[in-house]
Amino acid sequence: MRVVLAPDKFRGSLTARQVADAMAEGVRLAYPDAEVVTLPLADGGEGTAEVLAEATHGTWHTVPVRDPLGRPITAGYGMSGDGLATAFIEMAQASGLRLLASAERNPLKTSSVGTGDLIQAAIEHGARSIVLGIGGSATNDAGTGMASALGWRFQDEKGQDLIPTGATLRQITRIHPPFRPISASVSISVACDVTNPLTGSNGAAVVYGPQKGATPSMVDELDAGLVHVAQLIKQQFGVDLASVPGAGAAGGLGAGALFFLKATLKPGVDVVLDTVAFDQHVADADLVITGEGKMDEQTLQGKLLMGVAKRTQKANVPIVALCGTLDLSPADLNALGLVAAFSILNRPQTLDEAVKHAYADVRQATFAAVRLFFKGAN
């Protein structure tokens, strides 16, 4: 029998790799001769680059970059080991909100320049394609900071170069492409799970600015800056970005990736599953086991577990899910296409105890689920 293990992390207790390893032990306890394929997954957000590097037997590289306030730090990116020379980059590594203290969070002052530093480092290392995750950003600069690290120049009305931030967007009067643009042979896919436009009531500044530290007056200023940049790009280059779905992701880096990088925006789940060749692994499987820390209404909103379930169902392979907290109805489980879902919590536990015993509980729950499934199938 062939069992594919494709879990997300159990937030706060186990990484996706640890969940997959515990599941693998549970399968082999039940059926020592089973063929087990482990595919730790992520949803395109924080941790995705490391998951994808591992899934492709790749390597992790640490390089000097600039943080959201321009300070020198080090950040990492993954490089695939499958011969395809794909780089895995997370915006959060260099331009993430987690890099700033609460008092430092101000999207008028922050820049995505460090993300550009990572992209440049990956290209210099020989990347022929790039997968870019853009969750968790601290910025609202439409990707102009990222572009500046790649050679784009932004000038004010006096012809002076600007340091792109949320506050300087409205001062830009001319955009100059780099002397050495990224080669057209380098393909870039952006893992983007939001459909917000760049500007307006559902745009980057209004929806996401406050969580990055923006006050109501800052939101107005940031949105005006995004409107200005979008109009300038349309006037100067004939490209209309303002209402493109996903352009408002990551403080407008969605729009910046489309224009400055000529990238393609794709749902994060699809980017991850395609990169790990999920469909090929599942094609000959007898069972898929997935999981996440909590299965609830958010699971039904198209995130990782739903994406895994849909593809597994399409392959006509049964799928079982494990979780810490199970807060879905039988109708919800049917809608997901799951054969069954089980909580790994088999006894009363405090939160600390649940975290401490999570690995063993995943292993035990997998053992029980596999035995039940294959005994029933026979």
Rank of each mutant, 00 (worst) to 15 (best):
L69V: 09
G70R: 05
G70Y: 07
R71L: 12
T74K: 14
A75R: 00
G76W: 13
Y77A: 02
Y77R: 01
M79N: 03
M79Q: 08
S80V: 04
S80K: 07
D82A: 00
G83A: 05
L84Y: 05
A85G: 06
T86N: 00
T86L: 01
T86C: 05
I89R: 11
E90N: 08
E90C: 11
M91I: 04
A92P: 02
A92L: 06
A94Y: 05
A94V: 13
A94S: 15
S95T: 07
G96T: 05
L97C: 11
S102G: 10
A103L: 06
A103Q: 13
A103V: 10
R105L: 04
R105I: 08
N106K: 04
N106C: 03
P107E: 06
K109H: 13
S111W: 12
S111Y: 06
S112F: 05
S112L: 07
S112T: 13
T115N: 11
D117G: 13
L118K: 07
L118T: 07
I119D: 05
I119A: 07
Q120N: 15
A122R: 05
A122P: 10
I123H: 00
I123E: 06
E124Y: 14
G126T: 11
A127D: 08
L132T: 05
G135E: 00
G135Y: 03
G135C: 01
G136E: 04
S137K: 08
A138W: 05
T139H: 13
N140I: 12
A142I: 13
A142H: 01
G145L: 09
M146F: 08
M146D: 02
A147H: 11
